[in-house]
């Protein structure tokens, strides 16, 4: 969940975009306060989607204030005041960042590993400060399951991406109950699957060159030409179709701003990661012509 879940700002109303940025600032401040300043450097825009879904489900009150920070020392910015949803988002994302750092450390060799080791050390402390042992355990369990499937060169793409789906599902649903929990789990599960599948499709060429595991490499013919690409495109759109079903269960009428941001991410931001498969195809055709 790093860098994939973003809206297309051109399609947002100005007030919606301001709210989006204010939420980001709010999460950043909450992260600095609850998990440490260094950890806040790992924050990504993906966290805003997480926070907005949570605020829509819990009905958390959002009030804005003006604030200045180290990253924006000159201009005052709108910032959503700290609430439970933002604090939880900050804590959950410090754990996800730690997981990402562990993964990157395992995959990298040589001198490039040094800065990653430092980052992992910082994020380990932040994850400890986040004080969510259940989520930390879920993440470690699913990453271990994923590593096991990778070792076994699992040919089923769905089985591989399901680990990420289950993990994000648990993160979204944590500390919620009843229908809210069900909706949040559904959104997290589908989003996690989509991100993992899109990431694998994007990394195909790199993984083939470096002889790394990639589900599209072992699940198909070993090539990634038009038939495989068309199948990947269709299955990614199928994931979005399932995600849409879950997202439409959120209380959109009660929260129109947040609803529009979530819909923008679903209908514009995420499909951009499917369209790269078309684009490459177009470029190749252009070269041949």
């Amino acid at each position: 969940m790093f860098g994939y879940v973003k809206p297309v700002p051109d399609e947002l109303l100005v007030k919606e975009h301001n709210f989006y940025r204010a939420t980001y600032c709010g999460i950043c401040r909450a992260m600095q306060k609850h998990t440490g300043r260094l950890c806040a450097l790992s924050l990504t825009y993906d966290s805003v989607f997480f926070a907005i879904v949570r605020m829509m489900l819990t009905g958390e009150k959002c009030t804005a204030s003006r604030c200045r920070c180290l990253a924006h020392p000159v201009r005052c910015r709108d910032c959503v005041r700290e609430n439970d949803a933002l604090i939880f988002t900050a804590r959950a994302f410090s754990i996800l960042a730690y997981g990402k750092a562990c993964d990157a450390c395992d995959d990298t060799r040589g001198l490039h590993r040094l800065p990653l080791l430092v980052a992992r050390g910082v994020l380990r402390r932040a994850a400890k400060r986040a004080d969510l042992p259940d989520l930390l355990a879920v993440m470690q369990r699913e990453l271990a399951a994923l590593a096991e499937l990778e070792r076994a060169h699992c040919p089923s793409i769905d089985e591989v991406v399901d680990c990420s789906g289950r993990m994000l599902g648990e993160f979204f649903a944590a500390e919620l109950v009843g229908d809210e929990r069900e909706i949040a789990y559904g959104i997290g599960y589908r989003l996690g699957r989509f991100i993992a599948a899109a990431d694998a499709a994007e990394d195909f060429e790199k993984d083939r060159k470096n002889h790394n595991y990639n589900p599209y490499l072992f699940g198909g013919t070993g090539d990634f030409d038009e038939p495989e690409r068309a199948a990947a495109r269709l299955s990614l759109r199928a994931e979005l179709y399932e995600l849409e079903k879950e997202v439409l269960r959120l209380p959109h009428k009660a929260y129109p701003y947040m609803g529009n941001i979530v819909k923008n991410i679903l209908y514009y931001g995420l499909p951009a990661h499917v369209r790269f498969l078309d684009e490459r195809e177009g470029q190749e055709k252009g070269v041949k012509a």
Binding site: K6, V8, Y45, L240, K263
Partner: peptide
């Protein structure tokens, strides 16, 4: 699944002019 998103706010989803834009 093939036409996902095309029904949202008319025809703009899938318009290549809006693809290069990334937030923030």
């Amino acid at each position: 699944f093939g036409g996902f998103g095309s029904q949202y706010r008319g025809s703009r989803a899938g318009d290549p002019r809006f693809e290069g834009n990334r937030g923030g």
